[in-house]
């Protein structure tokens, strides 16, 4: 039924990650599901600790012990990868899934030249000779906007500025032309003036190559500008996922509404920024029912007992009981749920 193009590059189903600690098992991801289509940029937003980075680590198979994937599956271009043996998974990393980390200052090995790190990565994944790999590395550096790449390639990481290092990191992630890139807060550690350049670079490169991106960030501006779709995460669960226009302009989930309300806007009259009261629960103390219920303005009885599943509302899916209420159960005091603003 599905054509070749319609198979998502990445499909995550009910992904659950647990950390076994002395004080019990903490669930960092709870049945997270989403797809990323070919060439699509999926933004993943949420507060610190919402599970954004863990999702990226789980997909690429780099969850550090005592964490482990406790359930669900990760399917890359139709092939399940979460249960691959170590060696097979290593070949997926870099070759089919690339990853860009947050801090370019610490992502590069300080003791090796850029050329050594690039050529090493290229040769691990291809049959190129050292000379060919070097030529390719220079071409890559040129592509990510490093000036005079044939000269700069033999520099050490500390000889580059932060923004330039992040370009090198991007070149390293793209070395073997992966189909899918996980960018974990790629601009958080950079100067504001450089952030836009790096985002534009990632966007351009992935568009040219048809690479799909999972862009993890807590910068809504970056999401609005870059992503095609956005997933809002809260306490290890997906709260809402859908096209970026809809979710940013007219969020459904009360948490997503809060998140969007907290973004300052320069256009229009100066509105008061809306804060979400309280803080996200710790993993060890997630309330029963909907994890957001202590902070939700529209909370009602069902939210305390039943965990909401993702349900389709138009083009998007949202995990909130407000959109799944049989008429008979309507709580009169809250009135009809407002679906769009």
């Amino acid at each position: 039924m599905q054509s070749e193009a319609a198979i998502p590059v990445l499909s995550v189903r009910d992904l659950t990650v647990e950390f076994v600690t002395r004080r019990g098992t903490l669930r960092a991801l709870d049945r997270v599901s989403f797809d990323v289509a070919r060439g699509e940029v999926l933004g993943v937003v949420g507060e610190s600790g919402a599970g954004k980075s863990v999702t990226g680590s789980a997909i690429i198979g780099l969850i550090d012990p005592p964490g482990r994937i406790a359930g669900g599956e990760v399917v890359l271009s139709g092939e399940r990868i979460d249960n691959l043996p170590d060696e097979a998974m290593r070949k997926v990393r870099g070759r089919r899934i690339g990853m860009i980390f947050q801090d370019p200052l610490t992502s590069l090995n300080p003791l090796y030249r850029i050329s050594e790190q690039l050529i090493e990565t290229i040769r691990v994944h291809t049959d190129l000779s050292a000379a060919q790999a070097r030529a390719r590395a220079i071409a890559l550096l040129d592509e990510v906007g490093i000036p005079a790449p044939e000269r700069r390639i033999d520099s050490y990481p500390h000889e580059f500025s932060g923004g330039m290092r992040q370009r090198v990191v991007i070149a390293l992630a793209l070395c073997a032309e992966p189909d899918f890139i996980i960018a974990d807060e790629p601009t958080t550690a950079l100067d504001v003036s450089v952030q836009a350049q790096i985002i534009a670079l990632i966007k351009r490169l992935c568009k040219e190559r048809g690479t799909s991106v999972m862009l993890v960030t807590h910068d809504m501006g970056v999401i609005a500008e870059t992503a095609d779709r956005v997933a809002v995460m809260y306490a290890g669960r997906v709260a809402e996922i859908g096209p970026v226009r809809d979710v940013v302009k007219a969020p459904l989930h009360p948490y997503a509404k809060g998140l969007m309300g907290a973004i300052p806007s320069l256009e229009g009259e100066a509105k008061r920024l809306v804060q979400i009261p309280g803080t996200m629960p710790r993993l060890s103390a997630i309330p029963p029912g909907c994890a957001f219920n202590p902070r939700c303005a529209q909370v009602f009885a069902r939210c305390h007992v039943e965990q909401p599943e993702l349900i389709a509302v138009g083009d998007r899916r949202v995990a909130c009981h407000l959109y799944d209420m049989p008429q008979s159960l309507h709580d009169a005091s809250h009135g009809k749920p407002e679906i769009a603003a």
Binding site: R90, R93, M99, F101, E120, H125, V169
Partner: peptide, 26 residues
């Protein structure tokens, strides 16, 4: 535990190489 080791893993560098080339020298 350093970031650059994690990044080397994320690039698919074989574990032996990470241990003896990237980690040992540091």
């Amino acid at each position: 535990r350093a970031d650059f080791i994690r990044f080397a893993r994320a690039r698919g560098i074989p574990e032996r190489r990470i241990e003896f080339r990237h980690a040992l020298r540091n």
